[in-house]
Amino acid sequence: MIKVDNIKKRFGEEEILKGISTVFHKGKTNLIIGQSGSGKTVMLKCLLGLFKPEEGLIYYEEKAIQHMNEEQQRDLREEIGMLFQGGALFDSMNIEENVMFPLRMFTKQKKSEMLDRVNEVLSRVNLEGVNKKYPAEISGGMQKRVSIARAIVNRPKYLFCDEPNSGLDPKTATVIDNLIQEITHEFDITTVVVTHDMNSVMEIGENIVFLKNGVLVWQGNNTDIFNTDNVDVTDFVYSSDLFKKIREIQLKER
């Protein structure tokens, strides 16, 4: 569980997060959604400690990261897996080395043990036989999956994903979404996913936080979101023609 208590973040004059409070639950896929520029990535980077909010606290279980010393923060980070928007695989390393990296850095396992674990997670994300390839030699969807594998290899308690399916075709995007959800349930992880993809919202939105201009305007799950009267949310949800049509049909049926 991650609890966010009234965080504010500004860059220069501009306040990007204007006092956000919420809870991200354990064993659930928590989504942060909102329009481009609403502050989703900034919020995620605050959770990760890459940005320091000027005000407010972020609790991992009972303890606020702002109150942790450097040692404790480092320990916490070993429990965090992160899937970056572009994958952020190390291009100087092959797939196997990329996935093994957190193990090499933080465990004292033998090479063979590490290799076994690497192959285990690679097959978990349905990737086999690419161990020796380099990130530039595999497709974008495969890179995302390798990145997921790297994020979960050290058995994290928290998993963060920034737009896991941007730039992917709808089918691959769904595969990635489902993978994230399965992993979350399987290992009882607290997962936070930033997205603006309505498909993901429908597929895996177990707890959805809606941001607009740095303010949390709505929170609920993927059934609530189709029944809310909140104008900002309906604007966002029904901005695509497909969902507009669905909405019209729904309204007619009522």
Binding site: K45, L48, L50, Q73, R74, D75, L76, R77, E78, I80, M82, F84, Q85, G86, G87, A88, L89, F90, D91, S92, F101, P102, M105, F106
Partner: peptide, 20 residues
Amino acid sequence: SSIGSMRVTEQIDALEVMGI
């Protein structure tokens, strides 16, 4: 260029997130 491209592709963030 090698450090810069690690910066723009978030590889440096990835290191930091891991606590490195």
